[in-house]
Design a protein around this nucleic acid. Structure first.
Lengths: 102, 102
DNA sequence: TCTCTATATTGACGAACTTCGATTTTTAGA
DNA sequence: TCTAAAAATCGAAGTTCGTCAATATAGAGA
């Protein structure tokens, strides 16, 4: 039996979920925004989008659930940060697939 | 004004579309399958999935429309190939985002 | 030309998704 | 304790998506 590939080992459905998360234009823009900062609170993130606060909150939840961002509460504010390691892992999996014999 | 980043230059919505394409578990499995072969016809691809032929055709069309696969007709058969360069570009964009100052 | 096979397209249906308005929860400060 | 502000949750509306059955298209061979 052939050795399991990277994408077999980590659950394919789980990877697809993460890719679908960044596959939404709003969430990809959020990730891009968070990539340029160490941490941003929801109200700061919201100013970058023409969307209601519940919608922003919803998208951040999706990103949180797939492990691409983390939250840290400070007083009234919730500071979101990009999990660069998780995003890097996702990218590496795609890179591996892209290579011959990936 | 700050220089445009990689993800600004290439249209963000277009990138999101490609990520959404591989964000479906069936299509990610298709890409994974195609990554292990040089080219596969639809009927060969279909044997790997418990889905009807129109559904397979639909998913391949989605992957084609975002530029992640190409088709080559040979007689009755349509041979699909992974566009490794396009997948690699997508992965590189995510990698760039994942890096500090991405 | 007729038939058979591989693939694509169409139309429909149910599920999932994005968004919003309204409400709730949580915390800080008066 | 009361109020104000930030964020999360809920419920609903409208849209998109995945899937299928049926049909159409295209090419090969008789």
């Amino acid at each position: 039996m052939v050795a399991a590939t990277r994408l077999d080992r980590r659950d394919l459905a789980q990877r697809a979920e993460a890719l679908a998360a960044v596959g939404d234009p709003v969430r990809l823009a959020m990730v891009t925004l968070l990539a340029r900062h160490q941490a941003l609170c929801v109200c700061e993130i919201q100013t970058a989008f023409d969307l209601g606060q519940p919608t922003i909150s919803h998208h951040l939840k999706v990103l949180r659930e797939v492990g691409l961002v983390t939250v840290e509460r400070r007083g009234l504010w919730a500071y979101y940060s990009l999990r660069r390691d998780a995003l890097s892992d996702l990218a590496q999996d795609l890179l591996t697939l892209a290579r011959p014999q990936g």
